[in-house]
């Protein structure tokens, strides 16, 4: 199928982009890497009147270390992240990147696009939640910041308003002693996860400072504080995991054409167990 017709503009500054969005009365759609938006347009399930291509905006680019944070511009591609030595400071992202789609998609797909789209099965939202990243937005009333843990609201729904743009994400760099885990269950390399988990802990024996982000399990990426609390202070053994897993009741697991909701819940536990095992090894 071919995309429906639309107007296209490529602003050169953030201010110009914001003013285009403000003037479009909700009919404008920002275009980042296009790796999710373009398929939707090609299927004619997305039919924006105006496409605002963000590729020409310098304010959305660049990876910079700012103290204990790594600031990643929204239009940074996965490939640029992968190639940037600064990424060593955020090993969890480095662990996850090879699992995100395939080379040609990573060459254009952007971190900002993934976060703004908020696909429930995508890795980046869960990673940002797990890392306690901060999402920088810009809108007609100026910039604001939203913690990643409060950003994802539902199916393709975020705290970003239609007249706002996601500018950057600030990710805390790994502290000494901090460890990370990542595991996703996919039938094929590069597919969206049937369930996935990202883990961060400040200590392992016993587990301390634990954050666990789940993706591909429900309508959005999410963390379950009660579950994290239940595992904190344990040795991360299978018994400890089994004792904590009922706390995942807080998640509304979803079934699809491939697996039932019950299986997805089971998968979340398996992914967690495997990620934790590898992390503690």
């Amino acid at each position: 199928m071919k995309a429906p017709d639309f107007d296209y503009c490529r602003p050169g500054t953030l201010a110009e982009a914001l003013s285009l969005l403000a003037g479009a009365d909700g009919e404008a759609q920002p275009l980042a890497g296009g790796q999710s938006l373009m398929p939707m347009m090609n299927f004619r399930v997305a039919a924006p009147e105006i496409l605002v291509d963000l590729a020409g905006i310098p304010e959305l680019r660049g990876i910079a270390r700012q103290g204990d944070m790594l600031r990643i511009g929204a239009m940074t591609t996965y490939r640029e992240l992968q190639d940037d030595p600064a990424l060593q400071a955020v090993p969890l992202i480095a662990m996850a990147l090879p699992h995100i789609a395939h080379d040609a998609v990573r060459n254009r797909g952007t971190i900002g696009g993934s976060l703004a789209l908020a696909d429930a099965a995508a890795e980046m939202p869960a990673l940002m939640m797990t890392l306690n990243a901060v999402i920088e937005l810009a809108g007609p009333d100026g910039p604001r910041e939203v913690p990643a843990t409060e950003f994802f609201l539902g199916y393709y729904e975020t705290a970003c308003e239609p007249d706002e743009l996601l500018v950057a994400v600030r990710v805390p760099v790994a502290q000494p002693g901090e460890v990370f885990g990542f595991h996703e269950l996919v039938q094929r390399h590069g597919d969206y996860a049937m369930a996935g988990v990202a883990i961060r802990a400040t200590g392992v024996a016993p587990i301390a400072g634990l954050a666990v982000g789940f993706f591909g399990v429900s309508d959005r990426a999410l963390r379950v504080p009660a579950f994290e609390e239940a595992l904190t202070g344990t040795d991360g053994s299978e018994a400890a995991i089994a004792a904590a897993l009922p706390k995942l009741d807080a998640i509304e697991f979803e079934g699809d054409t491939k697996i039932s909701a019950e299986t997805r819940r089971h998968y979340a536990g398996v992914a967690l167990k495997r990620a934790l095992k590898e992390m503690l090894a």
Binding site: Y8, G34, Q35, M38, P39, N42, D53, R79, D103, A104, V105, N107, R108
Partner: peptide, 9 residues
């Protein structure tokens, strides 16, 4: 860089 020609305008 390798890209998908169908996902690029």
């Amino acid at each position: 860089k390798a890209v998908r020609g169908c996902l690029t305008l």
